[in-house]
Design a protein around this nucleic acid. Sequence first.
DNA 1: TTGTATGCGTTATCAA
DNA 2: TTGATAACGCATACAA
Lengths: 350, 350
Amino acid sequence: MVRYTISEIAKLCGTSPATVSRVLNNPGLVAEPLRDRIRKKMEEVGYKPNPFASRLSSQSRWGLALFVFDILNPFFALIVRKIGHLAMEQRIPLTVCDTENNEEKERIYLDYLLDNKIAGIIFAEGISIPTIERAQQQTETVLIDRHYREGLISEVTSDNYMGGRQATEYLLQLNHRNIGFIGGPSNWSSAEERLRGYRETLEENEIPFRKEMVFPGDLRFESGVRALEYFLTLPEWPSAIFSANDQMAFGVLSKANSLNISIPEDLSLIGFDDIPVYNLYTTILTAVRQDIDALCTTAFEIMLSKLNGESAGFEDGSEESRTVIPTTLKIGETCSKYTGSPARRVQRNG
Amino acid sequence: MVRYTISEIAKLCGTSPATVSRVLNNPGLVAEPLRDRIRKKMEEVGYKPNPFASRLSSQSRWGLALFVFDILNPFFALIVRKIGHLAMEQRIPLTVCDTENNEEKERIYLDYLLDNKIAGIIFAEGISIPTIERAQQQTETVLIDRHYREGLISEVTSDNYMGGRQATEYLLQLNHRNIGFIGGPSNWSSAEERLRGYRETLEENEIPFRKEMVFPGDLRFESGVRALEYFLTLPEWPSAIFSANDQMAFGVLSKANSLNISIPEDLSLIGFDDIPVYNLYTTILTAVRQDIDALCTTAFEIMLSKLNGESAGFEDGSEESRTVIPTTLKIGETCSKYTGSPARRVQRNG
DNA sequence: TTGTATGCGTTATCAA
DNA sequence: TTGATAACGCATACAA
């Protein structure tokens, strides 16, 4: 359990500490035989660099952080899991910051990370703009599924607009004309885009967009429950509901169940995300699938290239990239062709 | 954005770096007027210590890690959230390690953390013994809801045995005699304890324990679905089911729903954990509540005292503590008095 | 291609 | 109570 230092390795190999340091950071600068000898020796004695000494000397920042606003939401839990593994593969410490949708918590986490010279921060959807802007001035940043002003911060998002279209077009194909939409918080760009896809698809098909068919949710299960309750107060009930995420869709499903509204016979339902966890439910949700792995992998790669300084030098900010990951429609069991008056059975119970 | 150093602060205050360092680490050693002057100056220029220099010089370890086996499980997500906040309050970086129940991942995470001189690791239930043992030899460790050999590692657990008793006694009071149990993996001490509580309570009430009434689950939603399917293959169906966690209980609930088995009329159901998220479900689960906040807070405090060396010096290991947090029974809507033949309605569909 | 020497910002040991 | 000064382990500018 004794820790070796580069000087000791150097002595053992009859060379200088500088050379050992080079094989660690710039192997190309060391002649091959020497390099191999040093590497073998390090292996042999189990040498591990001291990260503190290394960072102190190189003056570099260290570590990554990931901000999510609700770790209980499986979509974000999956992001935490994936980014966690990617970071570990690169031996980069990752601090997970669950802000619980609270700006004060965001501020505290951020202060703390900046004090600790964090090398970069990945923000998932749901983090407030002031926090992101402040971070962006002092460290590397990448956004997942969140849109900021064009070209100022690198972002990786699903094609939320097209996803919104896919869902709506599918329902239209099934002859639904009266489609309810359950949205997200109004400052969430991803949910806004899904709404835009929904709206424009309707209008292109000459179905007027009616704002009473949009229920403002908060992406949680309960919002789905509330949304269905709300839609049932309308004079004309929707025959289909498109929810901006899976959790709310399951709220609808659960509430429908308890009201004896059967899905998809009485009501068609389509979600957004397609979280694998939910496939275990007895009813398989039809949903627009986001490719979470691709979102995370791409965001992480962008971050790595930033850390390696590969995009430095452009002072106009134009090197910030915007990557859009396509969505796909996964057909489950919760949509059916519209044939007549909606939700007849409900009227007995409602 | 210029970073000040202690030497600069010293110069500004007309003193030496050593003194400035003292007000940071040992304020008692510096006379009050000088101390206040230095503090004011640090405040004024926004001085932040360089963590790398500090760690290098003091040779101390740094940071904490938290191992969970499945971050998608809300019970563990809540632990991640709580420990994350506690760590942040203490300005201690926390690395969350989601091992996905995979020993190889555990090994990689652990290697990485030890290389980075992690100061301590908190293990939640579900992490394998070899990983814990290896960690314990090289860094501070605390277990949450996991039992290891007596007195060797500090642990904080719910009173799983009593929880098992509480649930079983409650069902017995409701006249249930035929109670199914859905367990966890056999090497999970917490689930084993719940089973023991169930078993002993039955036997004390002269109801024979029958092993066919125990379904081995894996704590996931789907296990609950499978469990109910299994119980319905038995010649004599249980009139009540006690699940070792909430997720599996919801699997039962969901499956029961699709089979037209109504809960609690046809079948009583009781879970374990009482995760707040689930309260949003239309049906409120009756469950044994674990006090997650207390589990986390206690575990974290123990870790802090270890980091401060407060329990050092005992070489026989006897300073390792074992804290048991009581559980309570939360009455929801999923249990009712047993009055006759079980699940009559099922027989029409089953 | 390799070695020497210096500095990174702190902490800690010794004297004063 | 305070001040010099030597580590801590590594990276790097410069010299060889």
